[in-house]
């Protein structure tokens, strides 16, 4: 059954900046050491085992001149603000658009986080920036960092539909095999997470703990996508069984209350079946029946679960294991 039927999930909390965080996370999902520290939505740090990049996001069209122009509010230019974020990595400005004339002068480089499409300033542009910095009396150490400054022009526009389509394509490129609506759900969750982390204020004395909280890791991302994938697997697996239509409906319905009503029973499944061989050469129904007999014998944990709840628990467990493979 297709997910494209009617109820498209509205993506809440979309903004260009949050989407940019997701963009980097998806790009690096297969790197176990990757994480992103979200200082604020337009100001975050990408980390890998060896590499680090400070990212400044701007959902606007800019030119080199504009990058160095001091804003009245911040009393600093965009570039300067990016360059003063830290001292150990690359400095990346993520833009919606770059003045074509400027971009043409820039040089394409490989970036450890983006792999392609990153640009570095040309020498003349660099001189122009430095002279501007000097004029603005920017700190010498900051000026030196212009060498490590890169610009990335967004592949998606500042609108949800465009961004969403791009992102799903990107997910598929990275073997995150989830359906359109499931992807939306995952994106939603990511946006919520990014907003929360961005808004989280590090308290004095708890810096170490809070630092962790403002981080989004590739592992976290993997869990989210796995969870999402497992939902699709549940559906596919259920389709593969030979339960009747009404029985399948009941199993689906049970699946939808597992979290709210059978949370501990579901959690306990991991313990019961952690060493269980799911690759046994049998049909889906046979597998379910085998596993169900185990649950049937466990009165203390599964006594309250009726037949279809047990089946839903089993399929959900199998789906999660499968999604994690």
């Amino acid at each position: 059954m297709s997910d494209n039927n009617g109820g498209a999930i509205a993506i809440k909390g979309f903004d260009f900046q949050a989407m940019t965080v997701v963009f980097f996370a998806v790009k690096n999902i297969n790197d176990d050491n990757f994480n992103v520290y979200i200082e604020s939505e337009e100001d975050f740090t990408l980390n890998k085992a060896e590499d680090k990049a400070y990212v400044q996001v701007k959902s606007m069209a800019l030119s080199v001149k504009k990058l160095t122009k001091i804003s009245k509010k911040a009393k600093k230019s965009i570039l300067e603000k990016n360059l003063e974020a830290g001292n150990e990595g690359e400095y990346l400005i993520y833009l919606k658009e770059m003045a074509k004339q400027d971009l043409n002068q820039m040089e394409r480089v490989d970036d450890s986080f983006i792999k392609d499409d990153a640009y570095v300033f040309s020498d003349s542009q660099r001189l122009e920036i430095i002279s501007q910095f000097k004029k603005d009396k920017v700190d010498k150490s900051i000026v030196e960092r212009v060498q490590k400054s890169r610009v990335f022009v967004s592949k998606f526009l500042d609108n949800l539909n465009d961004a969403r389509i791009y992102m799903i394509g990107l997910m598929n490129d990275n073997q995150i095999d989830i359906t359109d609506n499931r992807a939306n759900l995952a994106l939603n969750e990511l946006f919520i997470l990014i907003h929360e982390k961005a808004e989280y204020i590090v308290k004095k004395g708890h810096e170490r703990r809070d630092y962790e909280k403002k981080k989004l890791t590739s592992k976290d991302l993997g869990h989210i996508f796995t969870k999402t994938k497992s939902r699709d697997y549940f559906k596919d697996f259920l389709e593969d069984t030979n339960y009747s239509f009404l029985q399948k409906e009941k199993i689906k319905r049970a699946r939808e209350v597992l979290f709210t009503e059978y949370y501990s029973a579901r959690k306990n499944m991991d313990k019961v079946f952690s060493s269980y061989d799911l690759d046994d050469d049998c049909t889906s129904n046979e597998l379910i029946e085998k596993m169900k007999s185990k649950l049937d014998n466990d009165e203390s944990n599964y006594g309250d679960c009726e037949r279809f709840v047990k089946i839903a628990l089993i399929i959900d467990y199998i789906s999660e294991r499968a999604a994690n493979l």
């Binding site: 759900l185 995952a186 969750e189 929360e196 592992k219 989210i224 969870k227 979290f259």
Partner: peptide, 19 residues
């Protein structure tokens, strides 16, 4: 706060709601 479990739970519930 801000644990991946929270996130996964929310995702789970949202998926339920979606379904």
């Amino acid at each position: 706060k801000l644990t991946v479990e929270q996130s996964l739970s929310r995702l789970e519930l949202n998926n339920n709601i979606f379904d």
